[in-house]
């Protein structure tokens, strides 16, 4: 046998092809991973309840006791911000009931020291998005459309990822989502079979602007 003249051994091509395949496959995998992660609930913190100073339960207060959303979030129908209740609101009841519950000590301290409770924010939009709760309620966008069934949340968590596509989907076709004024605070409301017809009527009745206007950049970004 003569020594081989080949610069590369017989296995070199297999390694090169494997490397090329791994390179191409790795790139593809990387892109798919970035795409999947950037759409995942984990990335947007959906379903995660942050630890709060008091483990307030919407399930108990709004669901079981049936307190109206607006009892605490008083400006939700009229202002950009829905309003977060001051300690005084808690104390309407808790000065009468569960007055010694250890769980509520921070609430009582807050009142005594005249310092607000520092809740951790659950739902957040970027600063460059100008969102107004009042107009959405007035035109028939229900609480649960964006916040989920809050009255079933033992601890409050983010129900939806507020991506731009989430907003745009409704702004492009509001008739698919708007409900009658009476149903806005109904946590169980679901679009029915007649939704498109009913929604179109609501769009007309509430003077909701055209999709072209609603998707204008300056509607949300000013």
């Amino acid at each position: 046998m003569r020594p081989s003249r080949q610069l590369f051994g017989p296995g070199a091509d297999a390694y090169l092809r494997l490397a090329l395949l791994c390179g191409a496959g790795g790139l593809l995998l990387l892109l798919v991973t970035i795409g999947a992660v950037s759409r995942s609930a984990w990335f947007y913190g959906v379903g995660v309840a942050p630890e709060q100073p008091v483990p307030f339960s919407h399930k108990h207060h709004a669901g079981e006791l049936g307190i109206d959303c607006r009892y605490c979030h008083i400006s939700v129908e009229h202002a950009a911000s829905p309003g977060l209740p001051p300690t005084w609101t808690c104390m309407t009841c808790h000065s009468q009931i569960w007055t010694t519950a250890p769980m509520l000590a921070p609430v009582r301290d807050s009142l005594a020291n005249d310092e607000p409770l520092r809740w951790k924010r659950v739902n957040r939009l970027p600063d460059y998005v100008y969102f107004n709760h009042g107009i959405h309620i007035a035109k028939g966008v229900g609480c649960s459309s964006c916040h989920g069934e809050v009255d079933r949340m033992q601890l409050t968590f983010r129900a939806k990822a507020f991506t731009m596509s989430f907003c745009i989907t409704c702004h492009r076709a509001p008739e698919r989502f708007v409900r009658p004024a009476s149903e806005v605070f109904d946590m169980r409301w679901q679009p029915g079979v007649e939704q498109l017809k009913q929604g179109a009527a609501l769009v007309r009745a509430n003077h909701i602007r055209s999709a072209a206007e609603l998707t204008d950049c300056s509607i949300c970004h000013r």
């Binding site: 590369f8 051994g9 091509d13």
Partner: peptide, 9 residues
Amino acid sequence: PRLNHPAFN
């Protein structure tokens, strides 16, 4: 690519 080929012999 074909790094190893009989022609190189």
